[in-house]
Design a protein around this nucleic acid. Sequence first.
DNA 1: GTATGATTAAAACAATCGTTTGATTGATGA
DNA 2: TCATCAATCAAACGATTGTTTTAATCATAC
Lengths: 234, 234
Amino acid sequence: MRAPTERQSAPETRDRILDAAEALFVEHGFEATSMRMITGQAGANIAAVNYHFGSKDALIQEVFKRRLTELNRRRLAALDRLEAEAGGAALKPSRIVEAFFGTALEMAADTAHGGHTFMRLLGRTYTEPNGFVRQFLAEEYAEAVERFLAALYRALPDVPREEILWRFHFMMGAMSYAIAGTDALQLFAGKFDDADPERLLPRLMSFLLGGLRAPLPGQGVPGENGKGAPRTQN
Amino acid sequence: MRAPTERQSAPETRDRILDAAEALFVEHGFEATSMRMITGQAGANIAAVNYHFGSKDALIQEVFKRRLTELNRRRLAALDRLEAEAGGAALKPSRIVEAFFGTALEMAADTAHGGHTFMRLLGRTYTEPNGFVRQFLAEEYAEAVERFLAALYRALPDVPREEILWRFHFMMGAMSYAIAGTDALQLFAGKFDDADPERLLPRLMSFLLGGLRAPLPGQGVPGENGKGAPRTQN
DNA sequence: GTATGATTAAAACAATCGTTTGATTGATGA
DNA sequence: TCATCAATCAAACGATTGTTTTAATCATAC
Protein backbone atom coordinates (compact mmCIF):
# COMPACT_ATOMS: atom_id res chain seq x y z
CA MET A 1 0.00 0.00 0.00
CA ARG A 2 1.30 3.44 -0.86
CA ALA A 3 1.58 6.43 1.42
CA PRO A 4 -1.68 8.20 2.26
CA THR A 5 -0.58 11.40 0.58
CA GLU A 6 -3.80 13.33 0.93
CA ARG A 7 -4.98 12.57 4.41
CA GLN A 8 -5.65 15.16 7.05
CA SER A 9 -4.95 12.70 9.80
CA ALA A 10 -1.16 12.76 10.12
CA PRO A 11 0.07 16.29 10.46
CA GLU A 12 2.55 15.93 13.28
CA THR A 13 5.22 13.49 12.15
CA ARG A 14 4.99 14.36 8.50
CA ASP A 15 5.71 18.03 9.08
CA ARG A 16 8.42 17.38 11.60
CA ILE A 17 10.17 15.23 9.02
CA LEU A 18 9.87 17.93 6.37
CA ASP A 19 11.31 20.56 8.70
CA ALA A 20 14.16 18.34 9.81
CA ALA A 21 14.97 17.34 6.25
CA GLU A 22 14.95 20.96 5.09
CA ALA A 23 17.37 22.00 7.81
CA LEU A 24 19.68 19.03 7.31
CA PHE A 25 19.69 19.32 3.52
CA VAL A 26 20.86 22.92 3.68
CA GLU A 27 23.57 21.98 6.14
CA HIS A 28 24.93 18.81 4.58
CA GLY A 29 23.39 18.42 1.13
CA PHE A 30 21.06 15.71 -0.10
CA GLU A 31 23.45 12.81 -0.42
CA ALA A 32 25.24 13.43 2.85
CA THR A 33 21.97 13.58 4.77
CA SER A 34 20.87 10.08 5.74
CA MET A 35 17.40 8.91 6.57
CA ARG A 36 18.56 8.19 10.09
CA MET A 37 19.75 11.75 10.55
CA ILE A 38 16.39 13.06 9.36
CA THR A 39 14.19 10.79 11.43
CA GLY A 40 16.51 11.18 14.39
CA GLN A 41 16.20 14.97 14.37
CA ALA A 42 12.47 14.73 13.74
CA GLY A 43 12.01 12.33 16.64
CA ALA A 44 10.47 9.73 14.35
CA ASN A 45 11.19 6.15 13.47
CA ILE A 46 13.48 5.32 10.58
CA ALA A 47 10.59 3.77 8.69
CA ALA A 48 8.50 6.93 8.91
CA VAL A 49 9.94 8.56 5.81
CA ASN A 50 9.12 5.64 3.56
CA TYR A 51 5.72 5.35 5.13
CA HIS A 52 4.74 8.99 4.68
CA PHE A 53 6.57 9.84 1.46
CA GLY A 54 7.47 6.57 -0.21
CA SER A 55 11.18 7.19 -0.68
CA LYS A 56 14.00 9.62 0.04
CA ASP A 57 13.71 11.13 -3.42
CA ALA A 58 10.01 11.71 -2.93
CA LEU A 59 10.79 13.42 0.37
CA ILE A 60 13.25 15.75 -1.34
CA GLN A 61 10.58 16.63 -3.87
CA GLU A 62 8.05 17.34 -1.15
CA VAL A 63 10.49 19.57 0.74
CA PHE A 64 10.71 21.76 -2.34
CA LYS A 65 7.13 21.54 -3.41
CA ARG A 66 5.57 22.86 -0.22
CA ARG A 67 7.62 26.08 -0.37
CA LEU A 68 8.28 26.54 -4.06
CA THR A 69 4.66 26.33 -5.11
CA GLU A 70 3.88 29.12 -2.64
CA LEU A 71 6.85 31.24 -3.76
CA ASN A 72 5.94 31.12 -7.42
CA ARG A 73 2.28 31.67 -6.60
CA ARG A 74 3.25 34.91 -4.87
CA ARG A 75 5.47 35.90 -7.76
CA LEU A 76 2.72 35.41 -10.29
CA ALA A 77 0.24 37.21 -8.06
CA ALA A 78 2.60 40.18 -7.87
CA LEU A 79 2.93 40.18 -11.64
CA ASP A 80 -0.83 39.95 -12.06
CA ARG A 81 -1.20 42.95 -9.77
CA LEU A 82 1.30 44.98 -11.78
CA GLU A 83 -0.35 44.13 -15.06
CA ALA A 84 -3.77 44.97 -13.71
CA GLU A 85 -2.54 48.35 -12.52
CA ALA A 86 -0.87 49.08 -15.83
CA GLY A 87 -4.01 48.21 -17.76
CA GLY A 88 -2.46 46.97 -20.97
CA ALA A 89 0.57 49.25 -20.98
CA ALA A 90 4.08 47.78 -20.80
CA LEU A 91 5.51 47.51 -17.31
CA LYS A 92 8.62 49.18 -16.01
CA PRO A 93 11.47 46.67 -15.95
CA SER A 94 12.31 47.63 -12.40
CA ARG A 95 8.87 46.59 -11.21
CA ILE A 96 9.10 43.24 -12.99
CA VAL A 97 12.49 42.49 -11.51
CA GLU A 98 11.23 43.56 -8.12
CA ALA A 99 8.22 41.28 -8.37
CA PHE A 100 10.36 38.28 -9.17
CA PHE A 101 13.43 38.74 -7.03
CA GLY A 102 11.90 40.88 -4.31
CA THR A 103 9.35 38.19 -3.58
CA ALA A 104 12.15 35.66 -3.20
CA LEU A 105 14.08 37.90 -0.84
CA GLU A 106 10.94 38.51 1.16
CA MET A 107 10.64 34.79 1.72
CA ALA A 108 14.33 34.59 2.49
CA ALA A 109 13.89 37.25 5.18
CA ASP A 110 11.21 35.22 6.92
CA THR A 111 13.18 33.41 9.57
CA ALA A 112 10.11 32.65 11.65
CA HIS A 113 8.41 30.17 9.32
CA GLY A 114 11.42 28.42 7.81
CA GLY A 115 11.45 30.56 4.67
CA HIS A 116 15.02 31.60 5.32
CA THR A 117 16.26 28.05 5.63
CA PHE A 118 14.47 27.03 2.48
CA MET A 119 15.76 29.88 0.37
CA ARG A 120 19.32 29.05 1.35
CA LEU A 121 18.61 25.51 0.25
CA LEU A 122 17.04 26.66 -3.00
CA GLY A 123 20.00 28.88 -3.82
CA ARG A 124 22.29 25.92 -3.57
CA THR A 125 20.02 23.61 -5.47
CA TYR A 126 20.00 25.62 -8.68
CA THR A 127 23.37 24.05 -9.40
CA GLU A 128 22.50 20.63 -8.06
CA PRO A 129 23.92 17.83 -10.18
CA ASN A 130 21.20 15.35 -9.25
CA GLY A 131 19.15 14.89 -12.36
CA PHE A 132 15.72 14.37 -10.96
CA VAL A 133 16.01 17.39 -8.66
CA ARG A 134 16.94 19.58 -11.60
CA GLN A 135 14.06 18.38 -13.69
CA PHE A 136 11.62 18.80 -10.87
CA LEU A 137 12.76 22.37 -10.20
CA ALA A 138 12.56 23.24 -13.87
CA GLU A 139 8.97 22.04 -13.99
CA GLU A 140 8.02 23.98 -10.90
CA TYR A 141 9.56 27.12 -12.37
CA ALA A 142 8.34 26.78 -15.93
CA GLU A 143 5.22 28.92 -15.70
CA ALA A 144 6.78 31.72 -13.68
CA VAL A 145 9.83 31.95 -15.93
CA GLU A 146 7.61 32.00 -18.98
CA ARG A 147 5.40 34.81 -17.71
CA PHE A 148 8.21 36.99 -16.37
CA LEU A 149 10.28 36.63 -19.50
CA ALA A 150 7.29 37.62 -21.58
CA ALA A 151 6.79 40.67 -19.39
CA LEU A 152 10.43 41.66 -19.78
CA TYR A 153 10.27 41.21 -23.53
CA ARG A 154 7.33 43.62 -23.65
CA ALA A 155 8.99 46.05 -21.28
CA LEU A 156 12.23 46.15 -23.27
CA PRO A 157 11.17 45.91 -26.90
CA ASP A 158 14.44 47.36 -28.18
CA VAL A 159 16.65 44.83 -26.43
CA PRO A 160 17.24 41.55 -28.25
CA ARG A 161 15.42 38.76 -26.46
CA GLU A 162 18.60 36.75 -26.41
CA GLU A 163 20.23 39.42 -24.24
CA ILE A 164 17.27 39.62 -21.88
CA LEU A 165 17.40 35.87 -21.48
CA TRP A 166 21.08 35.92 -20.58
CA ARG A 167 20.66 38.78 -18.18
CA PHE A 168 17.79 37.07 -16.45
CA HIS A 169 20.09 34.12 -16.10
CA PHE A 170 22.82 36.30 -14.60
CA MET A 171 20.32 37.85 -12.21
CA MET A 172 19.31 34.44 -10.96
CA GLY A 173 22.93 33.75 -10.18
CA ALA A 174 23.46 36.98 -8.32
CA MET A 175 20.34 36.38 -6.26
CA SER A 176 21.34 32.83 -5.38
CA TYR A 177 24.61 34.08 -4.03
CA ALA A 178 22.96 36.91 -2.22
CA ILE A 179 20.77 34.47 -0.34
CA ALA A 180 23.17 31.59 0.15
CA GLY A 181 25.18 34.62 1.03
CA THR A 182 27.36 34.83 4.03
CA ASP A 183 26.93 31.20 4.96
CA ALA A 184 27.68 29.49 1.66
CA LEU A 185 31.24 29.77 0.51
CA GLN A 186 32.85 31.98 3.12
CA LEU A 187 34.92 33.76 0.52
CA PHE A 188 34.36 37.05 2.25
CA ALA A 189 34.18 35.71 5.76
CA GLY A 190 34.72 38.37 8.36
CA LYS A 191 34.63 41.10 5.75
CA PHE A 192 30.98 42.06 5.99
CA ASP A 193 30.52 44.71 8.66
CA ASP A 194 26.95 45.26 7.63
CA ALA A 195 25.12 42.07 6.77
CA ASP A 196 21.76 43.54 7.72
CA PRO A 197 19.21 41.51 5.79
CA GLU A 198 16.96 44.58 5.69
CA ARG A 199 19.44 46.23 3.38
CA LEU A 200 20.00 43.23 1.18
CA LEU A 201 16.94 43.83 -0.96
CA PRO A 202 17.78 47.39 -2.04
CA ARG A 203 21.41 46.42 -2.49
CA LEU A 204 20.63 43.47 -4.69
CA MET A 205 17.96 45.34 -6.60
CA SER A 206 20.30 48.16 -7.50
CA PHE A 207 22.83 45.70 -8.76
CA LEU A 208 20.33 43.67 -10.76
CA LEU A 209 18.79 46.71 -12.40
CA GLY A 210 22.19 48.13 -13.18
CA GLY A 211 23.08 44.90 -14.92
CA LEU A 212 19.78 44.68 -16.74
CA ARG A 213 20.05 48.23 -18.05
CA ALA A 214 23.74 48.07 -18.90
CA PRO A 215 24.81 49.06 -22.43
CA LEU A 216 24.61 46.08 -24.73
CA PRO A 217 27.89 44.39 -25.55
CA GLY A 218 29.34 45.42 -28.90
CA GLN A 219 27.69 43.26 -31.52
CA GLY A 220 30.84 41.18 -31.76
CA VAL A 221 31.94 40.84 -35.35
CA PRO A 222 32.55 37.10 -35.76
CA GLY A 223 36.28 36.60 -35.57
CA GLU A 224 36.86 39.47 -33.19
CA ASN A 225 37.03 37.36 -30.09
CA GLY A 226 36.17 38.25 -26.57
CA LYS A 227 39.54 39.25 -25.17
CA GLY A 228 38.88 42.95 -25.56
CA ALA A 229 36.77 44.97 -23.19
CA PRO A 230 33.08 45.28 -23.98
CA ARG A 231 31.83 48.69 -24.97
CA THR A 232 31.26 50.49 -21.75
CA GLN A 233 32.37 53.91 -20.76
CA ASN A 234 33.94 52.99 -17.46
CA MET B 1 53.98 4.35 3.63
CA ARG B 2 52.21 7.46 2.36
CA ALA B 3 51.67 8.46 -1.22
CA PRO B 4 54.76 9.62 -3.10
CA THR B 5 53.30 13.05 -3.70
CA GLU B 6 56.34 14.65 -5.27
CA ARG B 7 57.74 11.96 -7.50
CA GLN B 8 58.19 12.27 -11.22
CA SER B 9 57.78 8.58 -11.65
CA ALA B 10 53.98 8.07 -11.72
CA PRO B 11 52.39 10.45 -14.16
CA GLU B 12 50.03 8.17 -16.01
CA THR B 13 47.56 6.73 -13.53
CA ARG B 14 47.58 9.73 -11.24
CA ASP B 15 46.52 12.13 -13.97
CA ARG B 16 43.97 9.77 -15.41
CA ILE B 17 42.36 9.56 -11.98
CA LEU B 18 42.30 13.34 -11.63
CA ASP B 19 40.69 13.75 -15.03
CA ALA B 20 38.11 11.06 -14.39
CA ALA B 21 37.29 12.47 -10.95
CA GLU B 22 36.89 15.99 -12.34
CA ALA B 23 34.48 14.82 -15.01
CA LEU B 24 32.46 12.63 -12.66
CA PHE B 25 32.29 15.24 -9.90
CA VAL B 26 30.79 17.79 -12.25
CA GLU B 27 28.27 15.25 -13.46
CA HIS B 28 27.19 13.65 -10.19
CA GLY B 29 28.65 15.68 -7.32
CA PHE B 30 31.20 14.59 -4.77
CA GLU B 31 29.11 12.32 -2.60
CA ALA B 32 27.38 10.57 -5.44
CA THR B 33 30.65 9.81 -7.18
CA SER B 34 32.14 6.62 -5.78
CA MET B 35 35.74 5.52 -5.82
CA ARG B 36 34.76 2.66 -8.04
CA MET B 37 33.22 4.99 -10.60
CA ILE B 38 36.40 7.06 -10.64
CA THR B 39 38.88 4.23 -10.90
CA GLY B 40 36.62 2.45 -13.34
CA GLN B 41 36.54 5.41 -15.73
CA ALA B 42 40.27 5.97 -15.24
CA GLY B 43 41.04 2.35 -15.99
CA ALA B 44 42.75 1.92 -12.66
CA ASN B 45 42.39 -0.37 -9.70
CA ILE B 46 40.10 0.58 -6.85
CA ALA B 47 43.06 0.86 -4.51
CA ALA B 48 44.85 3.36 -6.74
CA VAL B 49 43.17 6.46 -5.29
CA ASN B 50 44.18 5.69 -1.75
CA TYR B 51 47.64 4.79 -2.92
CA HIS B 52 48.25 7.99 -4.89
CA PHE B 53 46.26 10.49 -2.86
CA GLY B 54 45.63 8.96 0.54
CA SER B 55 41.86 9.37 0.66
CA LYS B 56 38.85 10.51 -1.31
CA ASP B 57 38.88 13.89 0.42
CA ALA B 58 42.52 14.39 -0.48
CA LEU B 59 41.67 13.54 -4.07
CA ILE B 60 38.94 16.18 -4.12
CA GLN B 61 41.41 18.72 -2.83
CA GLU B 62 43.95 17.78 -5.49
CA VAL B 63 41.35 18.07 -8.25
CA PHE B 64 40.79 21.68 -7.24
CA LYS B 65 44.35 22.54 -6.41
CA ARG B 66 45.88 21.69 -9.76
CA ARG B 67 43.51 24.05 -11.60
CA LEU B 68 42.68 26.68 -9.04
CA THR B 69 46.26 27.54 -8.22
CA GLU B 70 46.83 28.17 -11.90
CA LEU B 71 43.65 30.21 -12.29
CA ASN B 72 44.43 32.56 -9.42
CA ARG B 73 48.04 32.79 -10.52
CA ARG B 74 46.82 34.08 -13.87
CA ARG B 75 44.42 36.46 -12.20
CA LEU B 76 47.10 37.96 -10.03
CA ALA B 77 49.49 38.16 -12.99
CA ALA B 78 46.84 40.09 -14.94
CA LEU B 79 46.39 42.45 -12.00
CA ASP B 80 50.13 42.91 -11.68
CA ARG B 81 50.31 43.80 -15.35
CA LEU B 82 47.54 46.39 -15.01
CA GLU B 83 49.15 47.98 -12.01
CA ALA B 84 52.53 48.09 -13.69
CA GLU B 85 51.01 49.81 -16.72
CA ALA B 86 49.15 52.31 -14.57
CA GLY B 87 52.28 53.18 -12.65
CA GLY B 88 50.75 54.11 -9.32
CA ALA B 89 47.51 55.56 -10.66
CA ALA B 90 44.17 53.98 -9.74
CA LEU B 91 42.89 51.43 -12.21
CA LYS B 92 39.70 51.57 -14.19
CA PRO B 93 37.09 49.33 -12.53
CA SER B 94 36.31 47.72 -15.86
CA ARG B 95 39.87 46.51 -16.22
CA ILE B 96 39.90 45.06 -12.73
CA VAL B 97 36.67 43.20 -13.28
CA GLU B 98 37.94 41.98 -16.60
CA ALA B 99 41.15 40.71 -15.06
CA PHE B 100 39.27 38.70 -12.45
CA PHE B 101 36.24 37.40 -14.30
CA GLY B 102 37.66 37.47 -17.82
CA THR B 103 40.48 35.20 -16.75
CA ALA B 104 37.97 32.74 -15.33
CA LEU B 105 35.91 32.79 -18.52
CA GLU B 106 39.03 32.27 -20.56
CA MET B 107 39.73 29.11 -18.64
CA ALA B 108 36.09 28.10 -18.98
CA ALA B 109 36.35 28.49 -22.74
CA ASP B 110 39.29 26.09 -22.91
CA THR B 111 37.59 22.83 -23.71
CA ALA B 112 40.78 21.21 -24.99
CA HIS B 113 42.63 20.97 -21.66
CA GLY B 114 39.77 20.31 -19.26
CA GLY B 115 39.41 23.93 -18.21
CA HIS B 116 35.78 23.96 -19.24
CA THR B 117 34.92 20.93 -17.17
CA PHE B 118 36.69 22.31 -14.17
CA MET B 119 35.04 25.72 -14.28
CA ARG B 120 31.62 24.09 -14.39
CA LEU B 121 32.65 22.14 -11.32
CA LEU B 122 33.98 25.24 -9.61
CA GLY B 123 30.79 27.17 -10.26
CA ARG B 124 28.83 24.50 -8.48
CA THR B 125 31.23 24.15 -5.64
CA TYR B 126 30.95 27.72 -4.43
CA THR B 127 27.74 26.63 -2.75
CA GLU B 128 29.01 23.24 -1.65
CA PRO B 129 27.77 22.30 1.83
CA ASN B 130 30.76 20.08 2.58
CA GLY B 131 32.75 21.92 5.20
CA PHE B 132 36.27 20.97 4.31
CA VAL B 133 35.75 21.81 0.63
CA ARG B 134 34.50 25.25 1.57
CA GLN B 135 37.43 25.95 3.81
CA PHE B 136 39.91 24.72 1.27
CA LEU B 137 38.42 26.92 -1.46
CA ALA B 138 38.41 29.93 0.82
CA GLU B 139 42.10 29.46 1.53
CA GLU B 140 42.94 29.07 -2.13
CA TYR B 141 41.04 32.26 -2.91
CA ALA B 142 42.17 34.38 0.01
CA GLU B 143 45.06 36.18 -1.64
CA ALA B 144 43.30 36.88 -4.93
CA VAL B 145 40.17 38.20 -3.22
CA GLU B 146 42.27 40.41 -0.98
CA ARG B 147 44.23 41.95 -3.82
CA PHE B 148 41.27 42.49 -6.16
CA LEU B 149 39.14 44.01 -3.44
CA ALA B 150 41.94 46.40 -2.56
CA ALA B 151 42.22 47.38 -6.22
CA LEU B 152 38.47 48.03 -6.43
CA TYR B 153 38.56 50.08 -3.25
CA ARG B 154 41.23 52.27 -4.80
CA ALA B 155 39.43 52.48 -8.12
CA LEU B 156 36.13 53.50 -6.53
CA PRO B 157 37.09 55.74 -3.63
CA ASP B 158 33.64 57.35 -3.45
CA VAL B 159 31.75 54.07 -3.12
CA PRO B 160 31.42 52.66 0.39
CA ARG B 161 33.58 49.57 0.74
CA GLU B 162 30.60 47.67 2.07
CA GLU B 163 28.81 48.18 -1.23
CA ILE B 164 31.81 47.13 -3.27
CA LEU B 165 32.06 43.99 -1.20
CA TRP B 166 28.44 43.09 -1.80
CA ARG B 167 28.65 43.79 -5.49
CA PHE B 168 31.74 41.69 -5.83
CA HIS B 169 29.75 38.96 -4.15
CA PHE B 170 26.87 39.42 -6.60
CA MET B 171 29.29 39.33 -9.51
CA MET B 172 30.68 36.03 -8.33
CA GLY B 173 27.18 34.63 -8.37
CA ALA B 174 26.40 35.88 -11.85
CA MET B 175 29.63 34.42 -13.16
CA SER B 176 29.02 31.04 -11.57
CA TYR B 177 25.69 30.82 -13.29
CA ALA B 178 27.14 32.02 -16.53
CA ILE B 179 29.61 29.16 -16.51
CA ALA B 180 27.51 26.44 -14.97
CA GLY B 181 25.29 27.97 -17.56
CA THR B 182 23.12 26.01 -19.86
CA ASP B 183 23.93 22.67 -18.31
CA ALA B 184 23.29 23.38 -14.66
CA LEU B 185 19.68 23.99 -13.79
CA GLN B 186 17.95 23.85 -17.14
CA LEU B 187 15.63 26.65 -16.21
CA PHE B 188 15.92 28.13 -19.64
CA ALA B 189 16.40 24.91 -21.52
CA GLY B 190 15.65 25.24 -25.16
CA LYS B 191 15.38 29.00 -24.89
CA PHE B 192 18.93 29.92 -25.83
CA ASP B 193 19.17 30.31 -29.58
CA ASP B 194 22.66 31.72 -29.28
CA ALA B 195 24.74 30.00 -26.66
CA ASP B 196 27.98 30.85 -28.43
CA PRO B 197 30.64 30.77 -25.73
CA GLU B 198 32.58 33.39 -27.69
CA ARG B 199 29.89 35.89 -26.88
CA LEU B 200 29.55 34.94 -23.26
CA LEU B 201 32.46 37.06 -22.10
CA PRO B 202 31.25 40.40 -23.50
CA ARG B 203 27.72 39.59 -22.42
CA LEU B 204 28.69 38.82 -18.86
CA MET B 205 31.11 41.71 -18.67
CA SER B 206 28.47 44.22 -19.70
CA PHE B 207 26.14 42.89 -17.07
CA LEU B 208 28.76 42.86 -14.32
CA LEU B 209 29.95 46.38 -15.05
CA GLY B 210 26.38 47.63 -15.23
CA GLY B 211 25.76 46.17 -11.82
CA LEU B 212 28.99 47.48 -10.39
CA ARG B 213 28.33 51.00 -11.64
CA ALA B 214 24.65 51.07 -10.74
CA PRO B 215 23.39 53.94 -8.62
CA LEU B 216 23.78 53.16 -4.96
CA PRO B 217 20.66 52.06 -3.13
CA GLY B 218 19.00 54.86 -1.19
CA GLN B 219 20.76 55.06 2.16
CA GLY B 220 17.83 53.33 3.78
CA VAL B 221 16.59 55.35 6.73
CA PRO B 222 16.21 52.72 9.47
CA GLY B 223 12.53 51.90 9.62
CA GLU B 224 11.91 52.49 5.95
CA ASN B 225 12.08 48.88 4.92
CA GLY B 226 12.96 47.37 1.61
CA LYS B 227 9.55 46.95 0.02
CA GLY B 228 9.82 50.08 -2.09
CA ALA B 229 11.87 50.29 -5.24
CA PRO B 230 15.47 51.43 -4.90
CA ARG B 231 16.39 54.74 -6.40
CA THR B 232 16.88 54.08 -10.03
CA GLN B 233 15.42 55.89 -12.96
CA ASN B 234 14.05 52.90 -14.78
C1' DG C 1 -16.00 -4.41 23.94
C1' DT C 2 -14.65 -5.24 19.45
C1' DA C 3 -13.34 -4.54 14.79
C1' DT C 4 -10.97 -1.25 11.61
C1' DG C 5 -7.39 1.10 9.76
C1' DA C 6 -3.83 4.46 10.22
C1' DT C 7 0.50 5.06 12.52
C1' DT C 8 4.68 3.72 14.99
C1' DA C 9 8.27 0.42 16.44
C1' DA C 10 12.23 -2.79 16.25
C1' DA C 11 14.81 -5.52 13.39
C1' DA C 12 16.66 -7.09 9.44
C1' DC C 13 17.43 -6.74 4.23
C1' DA C 14 20.76 -6.57 0.31
C1' DA C 15 23.67 -3.22 -1.62
C1' DT C 16 27.21 -0.05 -1.64
C1' DC C 17 30.41 2.89 0.62
C1' DG C 18 35.69 4.25 1.56
C1' DT C 19 39.53 1.93 2.99
C1' DT C 20 43.02 -1.75 3.91
C1' DT C 21 45.52 -5.93 3.29
C1' DG C 22 48.85 -8.95 1.25
C1' DA C 23 50.57 -10.75 -2.84
C1' DT C 24 52.42 -9.82 -7.51
C1' DT C 25 54.34 -7.28 -11.16
C1' DG C 26 57.98 -4.93 -13.58
C1' DA C 27 61.65 -1.91 -14.04
C1' DT C 28 65.97 -0.18 -11.90
C1' DG C 29 70.80 -0.32 -10.31
C1' DA C 30 74.44 -2.97 -7.96
C1' DT D 1 71.55 -12.41 -10.70
C1' DC D 2 69.70 -10.66 -7.09
C1' DA D 3 67.73 -7.06 -4.21
C1' DT D 4 64.91 -2.94 -4.16
C1' DC D 5 60.90 -0.35 -4.44
C1' DA D 6 57.14 2.03 -6.69
C1' DA D 7 52.99 0.46 -8.75
C1' DT D 8 49.13 -2.57 -9.54
C1' DC D 9 46.09 -6.20 -8.45
C1' DA D 10 42.19 -9.14 -6.41
C1' DA D 11 39.89 -9.67 -2.35
C1' DA D 12 38.08 -8.59 1.72
C1' DC D 13 37.21 -5.29 5.76
C1' DG D 14 33.58 -3.09 8.84
C1' DA D 15 30.42 0.56 8.48
C1' DT D 16 26.59 2.77 6.56
C1' DT D 17 23.25 3.35 2.97
C1' DG D 18 17.88 3.31 1.58
C1' DT D 19 14.31 0.22 2.01
C1' DT D 20 11.26 -3.57 3.67
C1' DT D 21 9.09 -6.61 6.83
C1' DT D 22 6.42 -7.87 10.68
C1' DA D 23 4.50 -6.88 14.90
C1' DA D 24 2.76 -3.63 18.27
C1' DT D 25 0.18 0.53 19.36
C1' DC D 26 -3.31 3.89 18.98
C1' DA D 27 -7.70 6.27 18.11
C1' DT D 28 -12.10 5.94 16.18
C1' DA D 29 -16.71 3.92 14.78
C1' DC D 30 -19.97 0.28 15.27
